[in-house]
Design a protein around this nucleic acid. Structure first.
Lengths: 209, 209
DNA sequence: ACCTGAACACCGTTCAAGT
DNA sequence: ACCTGAACACCGTTCAAGT
């Protein structure tokens, strides 16, 4: 039932190589985008090309492993915000942190869009993050700071969307995401709320008790 | 000064092949995503692989050519909305059309993010679209339906962002973008407006007369 | 002027041989 | 158990030969 899938303990050299690989990959992706070759990553990590594929069955899973680490980081930051004094400020701070995290790993996060679904580890991390967001959202709603018809899943997707809205100009205006996140947050205030169209994602369409 | 770059008239067979190529590419991208091989596209178009590269110097430019057509479509739809009776409804309708267009060409529009900057034709089409959006935005602002501190450029980026927010669940919930577009539009109402952080993109930071 | 497909370079992935 | 690099398959791009 404990479904953390890292199967067994790694041999010492394997654990060391895995860390070298992940660090080199993160650095290379940050510098040159996700199209850097595996050969270059392996060289920078000081390991053989084949070793990369022993640790990750495909390049996609290497990228997903980096995403997973970032998702977990944000989950922890979100959990820490759960006992902040102002629940509404805590939620907007969580969204700001999420966007900032995407700015730090721009190309990896851009590549992540379709990728998370294909990687069980990353998917699990995304689910944990959604649960944290759900808790922060419900708390802000009870406090009356956020409209009642949005979910934690919505918050995650909207903070991604706000960052991605600014992405085309990220080079010229690296802080532009703050502007669009502010618009989205304005749209989340109860005062602004008009009824939302369509079903709520991830929730059964039948009315809950 | 007339800077439309399609240099000269194409020979009849070249014009025909170009059209076959663009149609086959759009269909192939829609079905299989932008990673379909040029070989397959060429085969579907009934032309040789080399001919693809005679028309477009790189695969990126083939994708950009399709984007350009979509951008022009939206520009025209936006221009037609300029004399709608309700300026605010016209702007929200424009945003809805823009999101719908992305849904129709999902994978091509996803790939377009960084691509437009590298392709002069696509860049010009994006600039035309921004000007149309600017006109629609100013009209809605004079009508009092939209906050005064956003620009046409903001509107374009925000409608992209709303669509992309929903993109991770596009398969399971293809209409979800309507939900996030509604949140963004709620954030654009004058009543919701809180001051936006940072400089306005594309506008000189010095105060205008 | 334009078309074509063989040839090239590059990159992700596999695997037999090593320790 | 894990590492390695040579070998393989595939794909974007080029180009000499054709019309």
């Amino acid at each position: 039932m404990t479904a953390t899938s890292q199967p067994r303990r790694l041999r010492a050299d394997a654990a060391r190589n895995r860390k070298l690989l992940l660090d080199a990959a993160a650095a290379a992706f940050a510098e040159q985008g996700t199209e850097v070759s595996i050969a270059e990553i392996a060289q920078r990590a000081g390991i053989g090309k084949g070793t990369v594929f022993r640790h990750f069955p495909a390049k996609e899973n290497l990228i997903a492993a980096i995403i997973r680490a970032r998702l977990d980081e944000l989950s922890e930051a979100g959990a820490a915000l759960l006992d902040a004094a102002d629940p509404t400020a805590a939620l907007t701070e969580f969204m700001r942190l999420g966007a900032e995290l995407q700015a730090r790993d721009h190309s990896v996060c851009q590549a992540a869009i379709g990728l998370i679904h294909d990687d069980a580890e990353a998917q699990a991390a995304a689910d944990r993050l959604t649960r944290t967001a759900e808790a922060l959202t419900e708390r802000a709603q009870r406090h009356g700071g956020i409209r009642d018809d949005v979910t934690g899943q919505d918050i995650i997707l909207l903070l991604r969307g706000a960052y991605q809205a600014a992405a085309p100009l990220a080079h010229a205006a690296p802080e532009l995401w703050r502007r669009y996140l502010a618009v989205v947050i304005d749209g989340l205030r109860p005062a602004a709320a008009q009824p939302l169209p369509g079903p709520v994602p991830g929730r059964s369409p039948t009315v809950r008790p």
